[in-house]
Design a protein around this nucleic acid. Structure first.
Lengths: 191, 191
DNA sequence: TGTACAGGAATGAATATTCATTCTTATAAT
DNA sequence: ATTATAAGAATGAATATTCATTCCTGTACA
């Protein structure tokens, strides 16, 4: 197995175990076994478990940001851009359920809290796109006059909930339903 | 200290520690110390940590259900009832941040997943009230024709997000803002 | 009334387990 | 042959749980 492949296997195994069982259901020994490497080997690629967890997070964030930005044009009207992003997020979560579960685990853990505090007002990632979008929406008077955080919650909250329900099998999201959901979110946000 | 008081102290200590530091930041020894009892004493009241965690969850769920139902009248129009519940939930989360944090921890852990699977379609608690409400809303054609789970997500998702942001200090929810948020949620759900 | 005693409750030190990390040994590459 | 890499057994810290002992509290008896 090549060096990069090995690192990749470790990351993949960690992602899967943590996404499915949480940080506690993913001991290093188990990650090693799933990755098909020795326990000690992991430490040749990652200084310790924390580093592994955080690097994995950054990888994911970066990957998602790229996907969201695919085909995004800042010239289009606010409503259209809103729908673009929302749709992209939902599609991504459905296509990559493990990624989504991992992010959830991360955000609801001490790691995630530290992460938030790090950038109270210097956000990046999804939040960033939305913020920029809402700023313009406010200026043009097309969205409700509410604090940014609230607009974000109105747009993003339902997506998280619905993505989780899809992954747990409580609902099946097809393209039609995704469209209706995003439109409904827009109804909540628009003026 | 009376017997019930003691049980109560244990529960309170567990709630606080878990809400603030997660399940892992709350070893039994620490819970015992905070509760002012011996480590072994906890096991006189709860068979093991899992049982403690689950009983605590049920307690909370019950308590919240009661609060939500205060002043709820099934005769009022759907919109009014929707606003009643939403407002009550937000007020509760703000007044009892520890409870809210605990519930979040629980839901985002193996406990929560087991819990969900237990009652795939026999939900209780908040979800129950909303379901009944939406059923009527659908019959009367006042809410969008979407699956129950999706309607629930549209109504509930933003509340969770916004409650978390309030607790973390990213926004201050006063009565006026709460009103605006619930109305916005209704905009997303209504036909 | 005061004293001995029993039964239950509480305690916390001792134990068993789980896990991240390290270290020694084996293997492969140059 | 030397060096880098991998493996997985060994280590030690952290933790849930157990259990022998102590401490209460209420009751019976003198």
């Amino acid at each position: 197995m090549a060096k990069l492949e090995k690192r990749d296997e470790i990351v993949r195994a960690a992602l899967e175990l943590i996404a499915e069982n949480g940080f506690h259901g993913a001991p290093m020994a188990m990650i090693a076994e799933k990755a098909g490497v020795g326990a000690g080997t992991i430490y040749r690629y990652f200084e310790n478990k924390d580093v592994l967890i955080n690097e994995l997070y950054r990888d994911l964030e970066q990957r998602i940001y790229t996907v969201l930005m695919e085909g995004y044009s800042p010239e289009k009207p606010v409503r259209e851009r809103f729908i673009h992003i929302g749709t992209a997020i939902l599609r991504y979560c459905i296509a990559n359920p493990l990624d989504f579960r991992y992010l959830e685990q991360f955000h609801n853990s001490p790691y995630g809290v530290v992460h938030r505090r790090d950038r109270i007002l210097g956000e990046t990632g999804e939040k960033d796109i939305y913020l920029e979008l809402f700023k313009e929406g406010l200026a043009r008077h097309v969205v409700k006059e509410l604090p940014m955080v609230v607009l974000f919650a109105l747009a993003f909250g339902p997506l998280i909930t619905v993505a989780r329900d899809h992954i747990l099998g409580f609902v099946v999201l097809d393209e039609a339903l995704i469209g209706e959901i995003i439109t409904a979110c827009w109804d909540g946000v628009k003026r």
